[in-house]
Simulated assay, not measured.
Amino acid sequence: MPAKSKAQQMAAGAALAAKRGEKKKGELKGASKEMEKSMSEKELEKMASTSQKGKPDHVKSKH
């Protein structure tokens, strides 16, 4: 699934780096930490590769 915001795309990139061992898992915080645990490498690749062009910085939740 593609990222819906710049923040989500960046969090996916950080989680992907940790999953690949390029970054320490202990350095992750918040959304990237949860993404690393719950998503596969393929899912993270797809989300992290989303273009940031035209995306909002953050998307407000519906809660």
Rank of each mutant, 00 (worst) to 15 (best):
M1I: 11
P2T: 12
P2M: 15
P2A: 15
A3D: 07
S5E: 14
S5P: 09
S5Y: 02
K6D: 12
K6I: 14
A7M: 14
Q8P: 08
Q8D: 05
Q8L: 13
Q8W: 00
Q9S: 11
Q9Y: 08
M10K: 15
M10H: 15
M10Q: 14
A11G: 06
A11C: 07
A11M: 02
A11F: 07
A12Y: 02
A12I: 02
G13P: 09
A14L: 15
A14Y: 15
A15H: 04
A15R: 01
A15N: 03
L16I: 06
L16A: 04
A17D: 07
A18K: 08
A18H: 00
A18P: 01
K19P: 07
R20T: 12
R20S: 12
G21D: 07
E22C: 08
K23F: 09
K24M: 08
G26L: 08
G26V: 08
G26I: 09
E27H: 09
E27Y: 13
E27F: 12
E27D: 15
E27K: 08
L28G: 09
L28D: 01
K29P: 13
K29H: 12
G30I: 00
G30E: 01
A31Q: 13
A31R: 04
E34K: 12
E34Q: 11
E34S: 09
E34M: 10
E34C: 04
E34N: 13
M35I: 01
M35R: 02
E36L: 08
K37T: 01
K37C: 04
S38H: 14
M39F: 13
M39N: 05
S40T: 04
E41L: 06
E43Q: 06
E43C: 03
L44P: 02
L44R: 07
E45N: 02
E45T: 00
E45I: 00
K46V: 10
K46T: 11
M47E: 00
M47K: 00
M47S: 02
A48I: 02
A48N: 03
S49Y: 05
T50Q: 05
S51Y: 10
Q52W: 06
K53T: 08
K53A: 12
K53Y: 10
G54D: 07
G54V: 03
G54L: 04
G54C: 08
G54S: 00
K55Q: 02
K55C: 09
K55G: 01
K55S: 03
D57V: 04
H58E: 13
H58A: 05
V59R: 03
V59S: 00
K60Y: 06
K60A: 09
H63M: 14
H63W: 14
H63R: 14
